[in-house]
Simulated scan of single mutants.
Amino acid sequence: MEFTCARGPDAKGSTEHLKGLGRQFEIDFENILQCEIASDTELVERLVNNTRRYDQKAAALLSAASTWAYSDADTMARMICLRGIPNNETVSMHLENDALFLDTTAHVIQSQCGELVIVCFGGTLPTNTIQLLLDASVKTDPFFSTGIVHGGIFRAFLGLWPGIRVQLKGALLGYSNCFINAINEISHRGYTDLKTFDLKRSTMENSTLPGAEDGCPATVGRAKMKALYLTGHSLGGALAVLAAAAMHTDPVLAPIRDRLCGVYTFGQPMVGDEVFAKTFGSMFGDRLFRHVYRNDVVPHLPPRTVGWFTHFGQEYTPSLATWKFRNTRASQTWFGLYALAIGAAAWIKDQVPFLSKVSLPYSLGDHNPLNYLRTSLQSFPGAEFGPLSRACPTPDG
Rank of each mutant, 00 (worst) to 15 (best):
E2C: 04
C5K: 02
R7M: 14
G8L: 03
G8C: 05
D10R: 00
K12N: 12
T15C: 14
L18E: 07
K19Q: 09
G20Y: 03
G22S: 14
D28K: 10
E30H: 05
L33S: 04
Q34W: 08
C35R: 11
I37L: 10
A38R: 02
S39H: 07
E42I: 01
E45M: 09
V48A: 04
V48D: 09
N50Q: 06
L61P: 01
L61K: 03
L61M: 15
S63T: 08
S66C: 13
T67D: 06
W68F: 15
W68G: 02
D74G: 11
M79A: 08
G84M: 10
I85T: 00
F101T: 05
D103H: 15
T104F: 12
G114K: 04
G114Q: 04
V117I: 12
G122R: 14
G122Y: 02
L125A: 12
Q131W: 11
L134F: 06
K139A: 10
K139V: 00
S145W: 07
T146K: 12
G147L: 12
F154P: 01
L160E: 03
P162F: 07
I164D: 01
L168F: 01
A171D: 04
N177Q: 13
C178R: 13
N181H: 07
A182M: 04
E185C: 10
E185V: 04
S187Q: 14
K195A: 13
D198M: 03
K200Q: 04
N206T: 06
D214W: 01
A218T: 07
T219H: 01
T219R: 00
T219Q: 01
G221T: 13
T231D: 09
V241F: 15
L242P: 02
A243V: 14
M247I: 15
H248A: 12
D250L: 06
D250C: 10
R257F: 05
R259D: 00
V263E: 09
V263Q: 05
T265P: 08
F266H: 10
Q268K: 09
M270H: 02
G272W: 03
D273T: 09
G281F: 11
G285W: 05
R290I: 03
Y293C: 14
R294T: 10
D296Q: 08
V297F: 02
V298M: 00
P299N: 07
P299K: 07
G307H: 13
W308V: 14
W308D: 15
T310S: 08
F312K: 04
F312M: 04
L320K: 00
A321N: 10
R326N: 07
T328D: 14
R329I: 00
W334G: 06
F335G: 05
A341K: 10
I348R: 12
D350W: 01
Q351A: 11
P353R: 04
F354N: 07
F354G: 06
L355P: 01
S359G: 06
S359A: 07
L364G: 11
D366F: 02
H367T: 15
N368Y: 03
N371G: 06
N371P: 02
R374P: 00
L377S: 05
S379M: 08
F380K: 03
A383K: 14
F385M: 10
G386D: 11
P387F: 02
R390T: 15
C392T: 07
D396F: 02
